[in-house]
Design a protein around this nucleic acid. Sequence first.
DNA 1: CTACACAAGATCGTCAACAATCTGGCATAG
DNA 2: CTATGCCAGATTGTTGACGATCTTGTGTAG
Lengths: 229, 229
Amino acid sequence: MVEAATGETLEAENRVYARIFDGVMDRRLTPGTKLPERELCELFSASRSLVRRVLQRLAHDHIVDLRPNRGAIVATPTPEETRQIFEARRAIEGALVRLAAQHATEADIADLRQQLHDEHEAMHGSDQPAWARLASTFHLRVARLARNDILETYLKEIVSRCSLIVALYEPRGNAACEHDEHASIVSCLEEGNGAEAARLMEAHLVELEKHICLRQLDARPSLKERLGL
Amino acid sequence: MVEAATGETLEAENRVYARIFDGVMDRRLTPGTKLPERELCELFSASRSLVRRVLQRLAHDHIVDLRPNRGAIVATPTPEETRQIFEARRAIEGALVRLAAQHATEADIADLRQQLHDEHEAMHGSDQPAWARLASTFHLRVARLARNDILETYLKEIVSRCSLIVALYEPRGNAACEHDEHASIVSCLEEGNGAEAARLMEAHLVELEKHICLRQLDARPSLKERLGL
DNA sequence: CTACACAAGATCGTCAACAATCTGGCATAG
DNA sequence: CTATGCCAGATTGTTGACGATCTTGTGTAG
């Protein structure tokens, strides 16, 4: 087939977007990585206009930086942006867990427990990329329970930006979430205690930011550090 | 000049975006309005590719709906979307006023008081479009004081969607905010009382939603009502 | 040896023509 | 008279080529 319906290209577009998005979430695409149109076209066997649209979407979601006439690179959040991102995340994810506590069914809780189990195994199995990915997945799963697509979409965008931050300021990538804190949050959700769940979540996020801010003091994003000078 | 730097077109793109955006905020572009590419090109003396980019951005911000092969129309939020939008708005704007209370300077408060004065005049001057616009402006001004671009951007998007909702479910457009409630919020901000400011803001938004939900019962967006049947 | 200027290569941005799809009206059969 | 099928006009989606801009390597003057 040369080209089918318009729906096909939409699907292809989402596929390319998801591929790059996942690359960022898995920290295989690190901040500053160049994303030349030509190369993306060849890799995905896609037309330039499609690749271009995807890059614009990614730029709109603050995942890539589109520099005029200089191509697209994976975004590198500044320290100030980092501060704002975590502040926004606490607000939005706090609201999400409150809502999740209202709507969560027993089946939902069971799914989360299964998720926690997978997390635990990945952590002990020393499969660190998988662990990091599962840790983000947990947050997104909880968000889905809130039954609010808008806040959920916002959180997804923010979590992806957090992935960039971790890649920048936490080279070993060991800033993943603590398993126990996740477990406590699930317990609160089970009891329908939204207020406490939100409190735990916000504390959990403060811990995560502290982990990163500590490194931020010495690990500047500039290239001096990256060359060991 | 035929064509200048790339920055010029960027500027033109933002200009077209802003024009359509303002049209929605002022309720001159109502939900369902068709936005044909050809016509936009002529109106703004812009190329088709530029218009196309703008429409994609507007679609990403949920201001227009992009139907494949059928063109772009101004978005028409469903009742369920309306529920989610107000829920999200309470969460985000609540967080924003809390932050605004922390950062607001005396000059900021003075600016807000000026804003309140303009609101009051527009209300009495029976210049309703101006009033509705100023009411939204107040919320965005408060958001700016929070010093968090991410949450501010999210609120801007949500407020624009609220404008669509009002246009849909409040034909006369008289669902604007109460002046007094705005004034109370400013007072709390002046005292640095973020918790109370957030409480007032959330109550204010609940009132606004109630105003709309009441109409939602009889005024369905479907065409039966619009034909008087 | 250093610094500046220049030019070739590569990449991005734009435009215009072509192809695919949808809408609305008309003809025709029942 | 109603319903169905079809065709023309209009609109959108895509592609390919052209022009503009930036990067980088090289050469030359100081």
